[in-house]
């Protein structure tokens, strides 16, 4: 189990969501811990809950296969290798923080991160439009922007407000374009 989750996460670049197909490969095809439809069900639940995806899948599969110990092992295999690597790498970089090469690296990485953020924004925006439609998306986005950027409301409160709006009001509205 350690190996299965270690492999699927060490090979998954770009965060948890990109590891999902790899985890599916290990869980369904390789180890036969679940059938494909069980996996799909689990994924649906994982998507309905907040928090990182990969660790939720690891916890659930681990628990199903080996109880609480399985949960701990699968989660640790998902999290530990990359967490330790990032700490070690950043410690190394911080030691040379004032050197020109590291400053150059810091400067050059900004445009890549900016573009990655633009891409993420685009993807979530598209999901949002296909979920609640243009009009709702724009209105919610405008209110959220005003609250967070103009009024400096804590983002957590804005998200909770969106939960409430989505849970209590949205289901009763007619679906607009």
């Amino acid at each position: 189990m350690w190996w299965g989750f270690f492999i699927s996460n060490v090979l998954g670049y770009g965060g948890g969501p990109s590891s999902i197909p790899l985890m599916q490969n290990e869980i369904v095809q390789h180890y036969h811990w679940m059938t494909n439809s069980q996996f799909a069900n689990m994924l649906a639940l994982a998507n309905a809950l907040p928090g990182p995806i990969a660790t939720k899948i690891a916890a659930f599969t681990g628990y199903g296969v080996g109880g609480w110990l399985g949960l701990v092992v699968a989660t640790a295999a998902t999290v530990l290798p990359s967490a330790m690597a990032v700490v070690l790498l950043l410690r190394l970089l911080n030691r040379y923080r004032q050197s020109r090469p590291v400053k150059g690296m810091t400067a050059l990485v900004q445009p890549v991160i900016a573009v990655l953020m633009v891409v993420l924004t685009w993807q979530i925006g598209r999901d949002s439009v296909s979920g609640v439609g243009w009009i709702q998306s724009m209105c919610i986005a405008a209110v959220a922007w005003w609250a967070m950027e103009r009024r400096k409301v804590h983002p957590a409160l804005v998200i909770v407000a969106a939960f409430i709006y989505g849970g209590l009001i949205l289901p009763h509205l007619p679906r607009l374009a």
Partner: peptide, 26 residues
């Protein structure tokens, strides 16, 4: 429908947060 609504209503908020960060990095 409540859970569905909750998940969908958060998407625009997340999009705004990501968009603001994109602008800051730019």
């Amino acid at each position: 429908p409540v859970v569905k609504g909750v998940i969908e209503a958060v998407d625009p908020v997340v999009a705004v947060m990501l968009g603001v960060m994109a602008y800051e990095f730019l």
